[in-house]
Amino acid sequence: MIAARPDEAVPSDSQTLKAAWRDLVRGFGQHELWLQLGWQDIKQRYRRSTLGPLWITIATGVMAFALGMLYSVLFRIPVAEFLPHVTVGLIMWSFISGAIKDGAEIFIENEGLIKQLPSALSVHVYRLVWRQLLFLAHNMVIWVILMAVFPRNLGWHALLVIPAMGLLVVNGVWVAMFFGIVATRYRDVAPLLEALVQLLFYVTPIVWTTQTLTDQGGQISERAKLAMLNPLYHYLEVFRAPLIGAPVHAYNWWVVIGCTVGGLVISLFAMKKWRFRVSYWV
Rank of each mutant, 00 (worst) to 15 (best):
M271C: 13
L268N: 01
S267T: 14
W274N: 11
G263Q: 07
F276T: 12
Y280L: 05
G258H: 08
G258Y: 09
H249E: 15
I244P: 08
Y251P: 01
G263S: 10
R277L: 14
F239I: 02
K272C: 09
T260S: 12
A250L: 14
P247C: 07
V256N: 06
G263I: 04
A270C: 08
G262Q: 06
V256H: 01
G262I: 04
V261E: 05
I257H: 02
T260L: 06
G263P: 00
S267F: 08
S279G: 01
V255G: 04
F239D: 09
G263D: 12
W274C: 12
P242G: 05
W254L: 12
V265T: 12
V261R: 01
Y280R: 06
S267P: 12
K272E: 15
G262R: 03
G258N: 10
A250E: 04
L243I: 09
L268G: 00
R275L: 10
L243P: 08
V261D: 12
W254G: 02
N252G: 07
I257A: 08
G263E: 03
L243T: 10
V278A: 08
A250H: 04
N252R: 00
S267R: 13
H249C: 05
P247S: 11
G258M: 05
S279P: 02
V265N: 03
V261Q: 06
W274E: 08
Y280T: 01
A270K: 10
Y251W: 11
F239P: 09
C259K: 04
